[in-house]
Design a binder for these strands. Sequence first.
DNA 1: CGCACTGTTGATGTGCATCAAACAGCGTGG
DNA 2: CCACGCTGTTTGATGCACATCAACAGTGCG
Lengths: 247, 247
Amino acid sequence: MHETRPLQVHYLKAACSSCSVLELCLPIGMTGAEVERLDTLIVQRFKVKKGAALYRTGDPLRSLYAVRIGSFKTCVVSVDGREQVTGFHIPGEMLGLDAISADEHACTAFALEDSEVCPIHFAQLEKLAQTLPSLQHNLNRLLSREIVRDHSMLMLMGNMNSDERLAAFLLNLSQRFSIRGYSSKEFVLKMRRDEIGSYLGLRLETICRGIAHLRDQGLVEIAGRDVKIQDMEGLKQMVAGCHRQPR
Amino acid sequence: MHETRPLQVHYLKAACSSCSVLELCLPIGMTGAEVERLDTLIVQRFKVKKGAALYRTGDPLRSLYAVRIGSFKTCVVSVDGREQVTGFHIPGEMLGLDAISADEHACTAFALEDSEVCPIHFAQLEKLAQTLPSLQHNLNRLLSREIVRDHSMLMLMGNMNSDERLAAFLLNLSQRFSIRGYSSKEFVLKMRRDEIGSYLGLRLETICRGIAHLRDQGLVEIAGRDVKIQDMEGLKQMVAGCHRQPR
DNA sequence: CGCACTGTTGATGTGCATCAAACAGCGTGG
DNA sequence: CCACGCTGTTTGATGCACATCAACAGTGCG
């Protein structure tokens, strides 16, 4: 559902000097010299332990973060402490974009496993972007892509039944892994069932049953957190007629 | 739910020269001289008839649009033609931000009534933004604010029951009208029940029943499309404990 | 006036939440 | 080594919120 368009990987330069995944985020389409200037913003990568928060709702916006290794979930939390997962993030994806709105983070980002991020000082990024049109353009696109992604999620929440949501979720993950050079047919879920459930607007039990349904139809093979997609086309068809009542 | 922070109206200049509402969108915090330069981008406002599309999914991105008069809905449409309303837009709000992602519009914008918009040529806007840091910053914030708004909607879709969703919807509209100098307690819904339903992930009948419930509790008085909020605090409490199971 | 569109309300059905119980994996400590 | 507690996953039974189906009322317009 998210990021329906693949990033233009073939347009990339070596990218952000030594980083192996940043080539998938900000520097798309920038020249080597430009990327080197972007490089100066990134003071030092750092690690985040599994379960730890990279930032929390209300924290002042200092940096955006590019995931280098590992994975994160972002969630908004209500007054009474319950959470809605708003996204999962794998290497090459950017965290913290919603903080630009009010100069403070509007959600909390938790590491799903031991992870590593590149902080990108935002004030400096904005400043640099003034002199690098392509950088500015990429930032705009990154922000806009997040909006498109969220609209797809709204479509999912408003119009799809539980099995379709699950299929869409798996397809989306598959696609994102594929872009990053991992297998699109075999991967590992780093999040728990209840986190998938929150993300998709369902209970964890419903996720389990959905998995069973997809398995019964021979579409996937899921054991614990290991996923094997057996019928990609079948999954896609499931999402294509993406309404409660196909009639 | 959306736009939880009011725009900084008191910081404004006369704004976009002669325009009365653009002071609420892009030029926030810009100097008079800067606004005049922004002004050069807006070649001519134009009208959109009720029911007509301002742009459609797949249209190339030429301009962003600021709503000057009237109102719009934006929707994404699935293969089989059904739609999910992703937002409603009133004067001073920007349309088309999701098109930046791929240089083409990712949704369709319909006028809910006879309306008027200011097209802002995007390529020129980006170019101008290079020399006007505050303009660039405002664009970034606009994009980010849309992301925050969408995350609130996801929270709503994932965690609120039908009556709470309706209350949140009315409060949000109220707040936005208030920011724009209209009454926060009395306003007119420009959209149909089924459009509200699509937006909130509910059927139109459920919207009707929700309205009846809020009326029975003495929170609002709704006749047709005329809304009078009678107990703002009561509505807010309804949304505050925003979960299916307050326990 | 007649027709199309929109909104309201009632009756019925169902998809998913909820409640409950059992199981699998896994590290810890006796 | 096994017993254990803990976390996460799976599956079954039941109930409810909302969808669906249906009938009708109000409104506006050619």
